[in-house]
């Protein structure tokens, strides 16, 4: 489904965010990526949907190689949904319009058609009653659920989550994780950067530990927490668990 080979990303100023990064993800797999701050987790997700351009290496998503061509980048982005730590809902549009927008502009749906699927998505994340609210009238957890619905509106083949619950108050983390859990159960391919080790253990199929822009260790999640191979992984786990 996703093949990443020897990807390097150097930021202006010389920071090497990804340093020969390679990874394979199968269809329907839920992959959790963990690692210390600055290890390149966000950069990796951003490169996957073309928000950042890679300097070398290859990324192939569902048979399509990501290159610098603009049309190709747009095509990839439509296949890949992304959920951000800070939600990034459009504040001047209400919930329904937020989710309609890409359907109308990208899929060229008529308003009625878009609204119908928006309502179906809102039902799925339990927020149909908030359809006419503006983002700043919602709690963080509700905003993030809307953001997930918005990303799902284009029927992506892959969903990326970059610390989707890190900006939330503790009591709201659960409702967002529940939505993600449902999505995983439906067979969505998911790459999840998170500090929620409970979620990682319970929901994910595989855990990748990265540091300094490379994969240090990857293992099935049931093995990862019980018998980590590397010292660095062990150190990291002992810090966060």
């Amino acid at each position: 489904m996703i093949t990443v080979r020897d990807v390097t990303k150097v930021f202006p100023g010389g920071v090497v965010a990804l340093d020969g990064f390679s990874l394979d993800v199968c269809r329907g797999e839920v992959l959790v990526i963990i690692g210390p701050s600055g290890s390149g987790k966000s950069t990796f997700l951003r490169c996957l949907n073309g928000l950042d351009a890679i300097d070398s290496g290859t990324i192939i998503i569902d048979g399509v190689a990501l290159d610098k061509n603009e049309a190709n980048r747009l095509a990839i982005r439509r296949e890949v949904g992304m959920v951000f730590q800070s939600f990034n809902l459009f504040p001047h549009l209400n919930v329904e319009e937020n989710i309609n927008l890409a359907q109308q502009l990208v899929q060229k749906k008529k308003l009625a058609e878009a609204t119908a699927s928006t309502h179906a998505l809102l039902t799925r994340v339990g927020l149909l009653n908030k359809a006419n609210r503006y983002p700043d009238e919602l709690s963080g957890g509700q905003q993030q659920r809307v953001a997930i619905a918005r990303a799902l509106a284009l029927h992506p083949k892959v969903m990326l989550f970059d610390e989707a619950t890190s900006a939330l108050d503790p009591e709201m983390i659960g409702e967002v994780l529940d939505v993600m859990r449902d999505l995983a159960a439906e067979g969505m391919t998911m790459l999840v950067v998170t500090h929620e080790m409970g979620f990682a253990r319970e929901v994910s199929d595989r855990v990748v530990f990265m540091d300094h822009g490379r994969v240090v260790e990857e293992a099935a999640s049931k093995d990862f927490f019980t018998k980590p191979l590397h010292d660095r992984t062990r150190d990291f786990l002992s810090q966060i668990l």
Binding site: R46, L101, A102
Partner: peptide, 23 residues
């Protein structure tokens, strides 16, 4: 305008012009 707004509109597959125009 916060760059997160650009990232969201890009990640939804909006073109640059659509991002300007609608977001």
């Amino acid at each position: 305008i916060h760059r997160g707004q650009w990232e969201a509109s890009h990640s939804l597959g909006l073109t640059r012009w659509q991002g300007y125009r609608h977001v």
